[in-house]
Amino acid sequence: MSSIPKELKYAATHEWVRNDGDGVFTVGISEHAQDLLGDMVFVELPEVGDNVAAGDDVAVAESVKAASDIYAPIAGEIVAVNEELEDSPETVNSDPYGDGWLFKIKADDPSEVESLLDAEGYQAVIDEE
């Protein structure tokens, strides 16, 4: 049973979103997603300053098993990326909701986050798989 923190929002494509305040949101992949992918070997992140639309493939998580696209859960501007992952991509496996975060988005419309899944909704998505 993988953990799905209640305070986060989720996309059906397995990204999580944390509200940092001031319209900025941190994005990562869920514990379930990292478990499916296995040991992470490379993480390709977007550029700071990129403008992205919801659903754009903006990053790639490459594990021993597969390369997997990561989608922007909401529209906005990339304001930070987790450069630590360059040297230690395995952090995505060991701490997916913490130090394994991927990037931060300044939302065009913060209310867009409300339309994402809550923990219960995301659990239902996993159960369907």
């Binding site: 296995g38 040991d39 070997v41 021993v64 395995e90 496996n93």
Partner: peptide, 8 residues
């Protein structure tokens, strides 16, 4: 068994 945690 696929792995017991980390295959690396």
């Amino acid at each position: 068994p696929l792995n017991y945690g980390s295959q690396i």
